[in-house]
Design a protein around this nucleic acid. Sequence first.
RNA 1: GGAGGCGUCGCCUAGUCCGGUCUAUGGCGCCGCACUGCUAAUGCGGUUUGGGGUUAGCCCCAUCGCGAGUUCAAAUCUCGCCGCCUCCGCCA
Length: 434
Amino acid sequence: MIDLQVIRQEPDAVRASQIARGENPAAVDAVLEADSARRAAVATFESLRAEQKSLGKQIGPLQGKAKGGDAAAQAELDSLLAATSTLSDQVAAAEQVVREADAALDEAVKVLSNIVETAAPVGGEDDFVVLEELGAIRDFGAEGFTPRDHVELGEILGAIDIERGAKVSGSRFYYLTGQGALLELALINLAMAMATKNGFTPVIPPSLVKPAAMEGTGFLGQAAENVYRLEADDMYLVGTAEVPLAAMHMDEILDSKSLPMRYAGYSPCFRREAGSHGKDTKGIFRVHWFDKVEMFSYCAVEEAVAEHQRLLSFEKEFLNALELPFRVIDVATGDLGSSAARKFDCEAWFPTQDRYRELTSTSNCTTFQSRRLRIRTKGAEGTTPVATLNGTLVAITRTIAALLENHQQADGSVRIPAALRPFLGGMEFLTPVK
RNA sequence: GGAGGCGUCGCCUAGUCCGGUCUAUGGCGCCGCACUGCUAAUGCGGUUUGGGGUUAGCCCCAUCGCGAGUUCAAAUCUCGCCGCCUCCGCCA
């Protein structure tokens, strides 16, 4: 959630940010209104409460005297009890009003998406800015063959079994088999090795979480329809390790000397993909479940922009190690998730689609998540929320698809990039099994 | 799944039986100051979190796992929930 102070002091800036996202700026005014309503409620409650307290303090000693047979004390006690009794009802009522005002304010603030970085390109999905293009796109025509898509390659290599995935679990499920399964493990190991080298603590987090974790990371808002919920236990399957990694330090005050804290979490990711019917139905590009290594960083607010660049550089380092052609885009304001202030995507070239497709994504969430999750640090200005950032290191299925398509040979074999070979027993090619 | 125990402001802890004087005790740690060749020791002061107010010193409200209830009044009594520990059962 956004800092209420900021909304109070710079409502125009918040409105402008909402507009850039294509969201309703009037939501800001709703917050201001709820805020002043809450203030009034609190003032009423506090004055009643103070009165009640001071009356209560007189009662104890009087009771002693009254018991001793002091008639005057008894009379005073009776009138005090009567007064405090009606006061008590008023306090309870006032407290209820405060409670409701609090909830209303909270609700109003939570409607607002994070304030976008001013440098982010304004506009919708297509208004991204290409920051750079890396790696060489192969000319299959010149090499004398038509590239196969990852579905066909996966079949030839005995690496991906989509039919049986559908038989057992339905559409958008798959089996990774043989070389495909080994490839996933190799990618995970390479990613974890690089993350560790770059100062991340490897983590295998729970992928089933309580509502508080889901809610705190902001996935029950806009993205709620894409989340799997276990009705019987009131728990959620995470769509990314970002959720358990962010919730890991919820309700904690982090030692400022320990920042930045960097974690690399390996987890399965479950996504309902509601609203994407008919989109990317072929292969394992868009599936209900995949495994992923996600980077997550807690850092000081003033470090966040630099840390974001670092996460991006780690993503680029990984894709370069896989020798994939890709570009980096600066995602436009209208296409940011509600918690992101800025987002960079790395999109790999898919020769059979003749276009770039998202492989990794890194977001600077500033203090949007940490406020909800109450993750703070102590500094010169007191206890303040930390910034949180996340970035994909490797999303297995898309990465496998990109590797197969980009490194395929005319005979259906696939060249394994050098960086990955140590994790595949030195193997240089994935070879067809049929 | 069954039985029992426990949850107090960083950590440990007093208080809970028997409601008001709890504005929550003490120790450790930490921060500041004083003293002292340095360090250490010692002394004094400070040290939960959230919200609000104030020129400043500070002040006010809430906060004893969470929620509800009883009561004029709840850390304290009642109920529900959550978490941890021990034992039993089952199990990869």
